[in-house]
Nucleic acid binder design. Sequence first.
RNA 1: GGCGUGGUGCCCAAGUGGUCUAAGGGAGUGGUCUGCAAAACCAUCAUUCACCGGUUCAAAUCCGGUCCACGCCUCCA
Length: 475
Amino acid sequence: MAVYFFNTLNRKKEEFKPLKDNEVGFYTCGPTVYNFAHIGNFRAYIFEDLLRRALKYHGYKVKQVMNLTDVDDKTIRDSQKVKMSLNDFTAQYKKAFFEDLKTLKIEAAEVYPAATDHIAEMIELIEVLMEKGYAYQASDKSVYFSIAKFPEYGKLAKIDMENQRAGVRIDTDEYEKDSVADFALWKAYSEADGDVMWDSPWGKGRPGWHIECSAMSMKYLGKTFDIHTGGVDNMFPHHEDEIAQSESANGCTYVNYWLHCAHLIVNGEKMSKSLGNFFTLRELIEKGYTGSEIRWVLLGTHYRKKLNFTFEACDQARTQLKKFSDMFIQLNKAQGGAVVEIDVLISETEEHFKRAIGDDLNISDALSAVYGLYNGVKKLVNDNCAGDYASLAKNDAEKIIIQFKRFNEVLDCLDFDVQEEIVEIDDDIQSLAEQRFQARNNRDWAEADRLRDELKERGYVVEDSKDGWNLKKID
RNA sequence: GGCGUGGUGCCCAAGUGGUCUAAGGGAGUGGUCUGCAAAACCAUCAUUCACCGGUUCAAAUCCGGUCCACGCCUCCA
């Protein structure tokens, strides 16, 4: 089954053809480790996780590389603020990042190269650019890439440098450059960098931002590779600069497919600290949401569409995921002999799902396939088993669960091991419920309702069932 | 100023020339069940796709214009 992606390079959906038959190499711009990642960041990482799982679902072997930017203005600035070494400072956020990935069940990439471990590779690449005449050292000792030497500059972001607003980015430091848009490959050491510096053929300093991605992707994926992803904001200048550097140095296409995800907004507004709508994953977990619920929300909107994050959506996620868990609990009870025609439903929804995620990661359509199975199963059980899952044949129930697990290879939000809620309940609550049960049996409705209200006040909801009652704690 | 994206029911959200009187979810409504509830289940829920024109046998989907929202052009995913 063919896979299609919307390629930013020409703004069209294209059939995906990897360099190697069965293997896909892709590079995803990772975090700058100067703080806890926020949900906007995770929108991008979830998108990339969906990409890798969709590729695997379609039978590809994947090699994903995600960089960790552990040296730049922000990491240096903030490590100095707290008087920590750059390494110690970034180490704590790297650790936090990996913990967060686990919370959101984002699959581990094959390689997580850190910029500071690849200074030598970056220097090597800059040397090639110097030799080939694409780079120059300015009077401020920094090394810049000359975009005038790369006529295709702007092809990704569709930016025509002639028409750009002149002046906005010129500050006093930048007069050294031949052209304002030239970007730094190597930044000469300045006092503000403290003890952060490396030796290079151009003197002490540190790498520019863009060069790490070019150097590290080349090392782990080759000079040309299949897919490169990131947030839309990375399109320009970051990815444009990567293309310029890499293609100038290597003389070949850098990346075949560029995929960019749209931003996340919160309650319709851009997420920002001043609006008070800025959330890290950790804050949401503290509010009581689970990783699966947040994953479901972040996964649920197509990656090229702005995702409006709301608490309402998180609550909906809880409701939706619970529906699936409830069905799994029921399916696990199957032990009857009723055989239902399940195979067609399974193969249809499987095909639907696979086609959808292969169609530029159309998650909405894919989820409709999942609900197709869900609703189809309910209908079969209603029609053939009078709604009683216990009378369903165990073998059929297992087939259904296997298919949901198959979907879960991509979604990874469904929980198959939920037990029916057994709440630890105090004896006095238990006895209130008991008394109410007795009152009901005695048809003393007034007393029964009074006891129900009392239980409610104490935080429990009573649900009557055929042969007794259930107590549920109110959240 | 330049470039780009998007406006689909109460909310979220697919569909991008005919199977669309528009998928799916949430909420709502009606019903079954129940002493009443809750839960569960069943049913129902846009002749319409921001607006105005045009192309076409046929448009939510293509073209032009208008309005609105947003992003990038300032190392923020």
